[in-house]
Amino acid sequence: MANWIEVCAEGEIEEEDVIRFDHDGRTFAVYRSPDDAYFATDGLCTHEQIHLADGLVMDEVIECPKHNGRFDYRTGEALGAPVCVDLKTYPAKVEGGRVLIDLG
């Protein structure tokens, strides 16, 4: 069942950037891609428990701020050492100027 949760207003995430979003004791990373699409993943890197929101977004890749682990934030795919476990992803959309993610 869909469970859409509001994250923020549309403009609050800069283009090609990421923010941290906490909800119900869980933490997420919410991304805006260079072509203005929104995505969401679990907030913590799968290598060590480091928040990805301090990392750099370039194109479709988020780089972990701690040891450079790279993920495709659209699919959650871990792109090579030191990360080997994929990130969980969540559907995201914009509705009425608000960014929403579906926590299922």
Binding site: D54, L56, P65, K66
Partner: peptide
């Protein structure tokens, strides 16, 4: 503190 400089250093690296 924490990972506050990571983004800038990553950009410098690039």
């Amino acid at each position: 503190p924490g990972n506050t400089v990571a983004k800038d250093i990553k950009l410098f690296e690039k």
